[in-house]
Amino acid sequence: MSETNLTQNQNREEYPPGDLVIWIFIYAELLVFGVLFLAYAFSRSNNLELFNESQKLVNQEAGALNTLILITSSYFVVRAVAAIREGRAEQCGHWLLATMITGSGFIVVKLYEFSEKFGAGISLSTNTFFTYYLSMTAFHFMHVVLGLIILAAVWFKNRRGGYSQEDHMGVETGASYWHMVDLVWIILFPLVYVIR
């Protein structure tokens, strides 16, 4: 993708890709997650043992797998945007589909993880760590679902020929949102699953 952008590198773009409104939304979402991350970090430093004990119970493998899945799907959506920028709507559709399939993979792994936790009798009220763990991952999970819905809407519109080389803001908007979901997970995973 670096090749496609090379030409634009000299003169900076006025605005980020996609609809500006989504960026306001993205920044707001980042703020929410940021506050959650910090609340987690400081709450942990007050309950060190509890957090370290409970953290052993989370499934790191599943988390790591999901990191891989999300980054891959994020890469796919980059390809989708690149394709539509060159006017290849069909390829764009394929890449979007690939994004959604990998994104669904995340959902499957996550659902498995949740069922494992609920099966073990863990809920939001188990202890402070699990309050954070579950509310942060579930909140992120819902963002993945929302991201998939957005991507699906983009995919449908694309299939009906709604986007072209000149007009593809919708694709960029959906892609930006999906990257945000990825970005948040990249912080969330090491923080909640690994660091102790």
């Binding site: 952008n5 634009q8 773009e13 994020s74 930006s176 970005l183 990249i186």
Partner: peptide, 25 residues
């Protein structure tokens, strides 16, 4: 070390994936 990897990874997402590298500061 982990925090630095977080930073690198996330910065790459925002810079390359989100395409902010070519956008105004």
């Amino acid at each position: 070390f982990l925090l630095i990897t977080i930073f690198i990874k996330s910065a790459m997402i925002s810079e390359y994936f989100m395409g902010l590298k070519v956008v105004r500061w």
